[in-house]
Design a protein around this nucleic acid. Structure first.
Lengths: 114, 114
DNA sequence: TTGACATATTCCTATATCGGAATATCATTG
DNA sequence: CAATGATATTCCGATATAGGAATATGTCAA
């Protein structure tokens, strides 16, 4: 089977660091493509392509404004990711996890390979 | 440039649906590879590969137990994802409020009284 | 219409994915 | 040691990626 397409959902779309940077930037305000490219130091075609992905999963909307195209944030789809990861909160808080890691560490010291 | 490697961090590792299923399953308890494969209906080599990715980003640990290898959850790295998405909470709240206002508006238009 | 700017699309290349199949490795037991 | 069971690794194929370069499309203004 092929790799999971980046346009599948929010999980795949935000796997790419540049796309996360774009989303973070758009928290500031709506913005035309060139501004995004300039602020983040990415070339315009790359930005357009990333915005295409983000739009397909609904994380941004766009609106024509003169010869420009204004992009804005729609974070709704991030909620699913937030909630899914939130389902693990109890596991990163409990101390027995730390104990288990410690046990693993001891074991690795005895078995210093793979 | 090549696609972002799945072993980069938690963001990339959880982009794959089967890996999310594995992590969810491991909330239940530690488990040997074959059990995971059987419960989720994935073939053993696939499970081993996914576990390899998850281990590289620190989302699981493993411990030998007889001829088996027990895998367990270490959700620590998911916290970063949870917090990053949490930084957008105000924005999905905002759009929710916008929706509510819009719904209210429609209602007012249909019911143009008090 | 022409020119100038803003954005999108296409083509390319190197690299990575994910699953299947076959096989290798490793630990346990007889 | 040989056989078995559990897991990991390797090789394959079809597909997708991300960025660069070049070009196409679109929109306004004179």
């Amino acid at each position: 089977m092929p790799p999971t397409a980046t346009t599948t959902d929010a999980f795949t779309a935000i796997a790419e660091p540049q796309r996360r940077r774009i989303l973070t930037l758009l928290k500031t305000s709506e913005m035309p493509v060139n501004d995004i490219a300039h602020v983040l130091g990415i070339r315009q075609p790359s930005v357009s392509k990333h915005l295409g992905v983000l739009k397909q999963v609904g994380l941004v909307y766009s609106r024509p404004h003169g010869k420009q195209r204004i992009y804005g944030l729609d974070a709704t789809a991030l909620r699913a990711v937030h909630e899914w990861t939130g389902g693990f909160a109890q596991f990163w808080q409990e101390s027995f996890e730390r104990l288990e890691r410690y046990a693993q560490q001891l074991e690795d010291e005895e078995n210093p390979n793979a």
